[in-house]
C-alpha cells in the first residue's frame, strides 16, 4: 500500500492511541500478589546436586533462552589436593546434557549450579544508563526489554557472568527468577525440574519459609562475597575454590 499524506493524517489518531498504550504499559497481571510482601532468593545445596542438567534444560524451555547463552548453567569442579585453589572447571554446553563420566582419582569433584544472584546491591542495575534493569520491590533483578538499548554495560558490570546480549532481541537478557511463575504461586522452572531438591526457591520475607531454619543451621556461602553485591542465592556446602 502506498501511504500518501492523506493516509498519514488518517493514521495519526490511531498512532496516537497506540503510542498512548505504549506509554501506559499493560496493567497488573497477578491481582492476588503483593510485591511488598516478598523478598525472593534461592538456596542451592551443593551436596545434593548430581549434575543432570535438568535445570539448564528446564530454564531454556521455560524462558526461550537462545542457544549458546545461559540464564542458568552447571559447572563441574575438579580439585586435587595439591592445587586446592586451582580447580579444573568444565561446563559443556552449560551442563545442559549432563557431564562426561568422571573416574575415581585424586582429588574431589562437585557440581555448582549458577544463576543470577539477584544481588540486593547489584552492580548491573547501578550502571544501567537508562533504568532498563532494576530491582523489583520483591527483590528480583529484572530487565525491561522494551526499554533496554543494548549497550551491554550491565553485562560488563556483573561479576558472575550471568548476563548476555540476546542475539536476536539485541537487548540484555538474564534469569528473571521465573518472575512470571513465582508471582503466581509456582516455583521456578529450574527448581520444578530439579530431581534432588538441590535448588529451592526462597522467600525471605515469609516467616514460614524453611529457608530461615536452613540458613540458621548450615554453613552458608555466597559467590564472590568480596564483591559486596549482597547476593540472594545462598550455597550450602560450597567449596572455597569456587569462583
Amino acid at each position: 500500500m502506498k501511504i500518501t499524506r492523506r493516509h498519514l493524517l488518517l493514521l495519526l489518531p490511531a498512532a496516537a492511541v497506540a503510542w498512548e498504550s505504549v506509554l501506559a504499559g499493560t496493567p497488573e497481571q497477578s491481582p492476588n500478589y503483593t510485591m511488598t510482601e516478598h523478598w525472593w532468593g534461592m538456596l542451592i545445596d551443593i551436596s545434593k546436586c548430581i549434575g543432570c542438567g535438568n535445570c539448564v534444560r528446564a530454564c531454556q524451555e521455560e524462558n526461550d533462552v537462545p542457544d549458546g547463552f545461559f540464564r542458568t548453567w552447571v559447572e563441574r569442579y575438579h580439585v586435587d589436593d595439591w592445587h586446592i585453589t586451582e580447580p579444573q572447571v568444565i561446563s559443556p554446553d552449560g551442563g545442559k546434557n549432563g557431564f562426561p563420566v568422571a573416574k575415581e582419582d585424586e582429588g574431589k569433584y562437585f557440581f555448582v549450579p549458577k544463576l543470577c544472584n539477584h544481588c540486593a546491591d547489584s552492580p548491573c542495575t547501578q550502571v544501567c544508563p537508562v533504568g532498563a534493569t532494576f530491582i523489583s520491590p520483591d527483590g528480583v533483578v529484572l530487565i525491561d526489554q522494551t526499554y533496554c538499548m543494548g549497550c551491554a554495560y550491565c553485562v560488563q558490570a556483573c561479576p558472575y557472568g550471568c548476563r548476555y546480549i540476546h542475539p536476536t532481541k539485541r537487548v540484555a537478557d538474564k534469569c528473571t527468577l521465573c518472575y512470571h511463575r513465582i508471582t503466581k504461586g509456582l516455583t521456578t522452572a529450574c527448581c520444578e525440574a530439579c530431581p534432588t531438591g538441590a535448588r529451592q526457591l526462597a522467600d525471605l520475607k515469609n516467616p514460614a519459609d524453611p529457608i530461615h531454619e536452613f540458613l540458621k543451621t548450615h554453613s552458608i556461602h555466597v559467590l564472590k562475597p568480596e564483591m559486596a553485591t549482597n547476593p540472594k542465592v545462598f550455597y550450602n556446602d560450597l567449596d572455597g575454590s569456587v569462583r
Binding site: G25, T26, H180, T183
Partner: peptide
C-alpha cells in the same frame, strides 16, 4: 509497568 509485563 515492566514488572507486570514480565509477570504475564
Amino acid at each position: 509497568a515492566a514488572i507486570s509485563e514480565i509477570a504475564s
